[in-house]
Design a protein around this nucleic acid. Sequence first.
DNA 1: GATGCATATACATGTTTATGCATATTGATT
DNA 2: AATCAATATGCATAAACATGTATATGCATC
Lengths: 112, 112
Amino acid sequence: MHIDSFQVLADPTRRHVVDALSRGERQVNDLVAEIGIHQSGVSRHLRILNEAGFVSVRADGQRRLYALKPDRFREIDDWLAKYRSLWEARLDRFGAALEARRQKPEQTKEKE
Amino acid sequence: MHIDSFQVLADPTRRHVVDALSRGERQVNDLVAEIGIHQSGVSRHLRILNEAGFVSVRADGQRRLYALKPDRFREIDDWLAKYRSLWEARLDRFGAALEARRQKPEQTKEKE
DNA sequence: GATGCATATACATGTTTATGCATATTGATT
DNA sequence: AATCAATATGCATAAACATGTATATGCATC
């Protein structure tokens, strides 16, 4: 299906692109200016983001306007839901259930 | 500060480890059995997860018990907040978490 | 203190990946 | 059609990374 979300977002430059796009649709050259790597690099990052479903493109003359698409972000949110009880445990009953399932040889104390 | 969250989670095996730990504290050998790579590999992944702050360790005799730590997950949640408006009309985060939990019993299909 | 079990690390290797440079493509303008 | 502007892609390179094998460390029990 799609490329792995986390692998796509693992690259800081790519996250920079995503961040820039969170402020609205942008054309490639604008991103080049904001991000500071070579144009070919930005294009390739956009290609990856597009193939991964993080962004959409539309042509406007010779320009290409990129914008964020929600689906993959929602997917990450779903993944995160499994772990949300780690810090929201006291608030919902799922967290309580998960807490109860923790096998503890004694009391779990967190330290380092 | 810490290593990059997304870079840490980019590796599918590492997410497998995290997933296993979401069901409770585990010792290294159990993870080796569940995950199916060599023990040295699991140890290295755990080292990375630990240094990144995703897990904690405590010694229990000769065993080392690893467990998830919430902070880095919360950090990802915060990052995601910037993009939640992409798909969220009205629901607040807690509501969304509950909703997501209710929808799917299985969520492990993430690594192809 | 010797032996055995659980976990960690050093080393070598094959693979992936981000990048710049050069070039190709596509669209606009004259 | 010629040229310029915006974007995409092939190639080469260097760095990062995951993995297995072998070995080391740490703990426990005899």
